[in-house]
Design a protein around this nucleic acid. Structure first.
Lengths: 144, 144
DNA sequence: CTTAAATCAGAGGAAATTAGTCGGAATTGG
DNA sequence: CCAATTCCGACTAATTTCCTCTGATTTAAG
């Protein structure tokens, strides 16, 4: 029941971009160095984030990435889902309800628990925005 | 961010035992057949549940497993933690707070999110008991 | 125009985790 | 005794995760 490095690295990178929002693009190299993440690996993650429409990229010299919209308009759920796929405790419950229903779905009493977990989890993910995390970062390391 | 088969199978087995609570031990073979789980694999899981003090076992002929206490006194968190280990979105946050703090813990702004997830997740796990799931099972398949 | 700095795309591979199997020892009711 | 059952630990196969690499494309700056 763990978020993988994709989610952890992806979110850290996005907080980094949130801190620099409005100041033009930041290169992969910079983000990777700041967060001590493999540059090649982060490249993959940024690809997912771009395809999900969460970041804009600028190619070529002086290029890089920047948030596609304000930090307050991007939830941590948006980010995690983009890099990790649906955040759900079991396969048969995802954002769309039930993608591949188990055969005995009507007889699956444990489903009750999975639904509760899914609901609470996504409530947190959708209500915590990059702005919240950016503010937290500034609180922890003032005017850096 | 998924519960593995250990958690899914383990919980299903425990609901099975909850349905038969007070009627003497049930054999691994029976549980495995009912839930369509590998007998050998389930054997491992029952071992974890026994070591966690959630089930009592009886060896020899006519032996088997039964809940160590009433279904209302066993939470789904007890079960999942016994078979899956700590239920936490990231390694640095578990039941004991912070086992292996990341170096930059004071600068880890994403920790805010992980804490919120951890809190809500465990709130659900601790408040949903085997009695809740047993009742759900009866509701779905009356007097079977 | 050339060049260096970047992103983009996708293949591939090592390591870790998960899922499942198995053989044999120990225990116990009939 | 015997058959049914749990107990224990090792082992293997499959899957997933994590990361690396190569080459192509784009673009700002000199």
């Amino acid at each position: 029941m763990r978020i993988t490095t994709r989610g952890r690295y992806g979110l850290k990178a996005m907080v980094e971009l949130a801190l620099a929002f409005g100041q033009g693009p930041i290169s992969l190299k910079n983000i990777a160095a700041n967060q001590e993440i493999s540059e090649y690996y982060l490249e993959q993650l940024m690809g997912s984030l771009r395809k999900a429409g969460l970041v804009k990229s600028a190619r070529g010299a002086q290029g890089g990435y920047e948030l596609a919209r304000a930090p307050s308009e991007i939830s941590s759920g948006d980010v995690l889902r983009a890099v990790e796929g649906p955040i759900s405790p079991v396969e048969c419950i995802d954002e769309n309800g039930c993608r591949e229903p188990c055969e005995k779905i009507d007889l699956c009493s444990t489903r009750l628990l999975w639904l509760r977990m899914h609901e609470q989890l996504n409530k947190v993910l959708d209500s915590t925005t990059l702005e919240d995390l950016r503010a937290e970062a500034e609180r922890l390391a003032p005017q850096s």
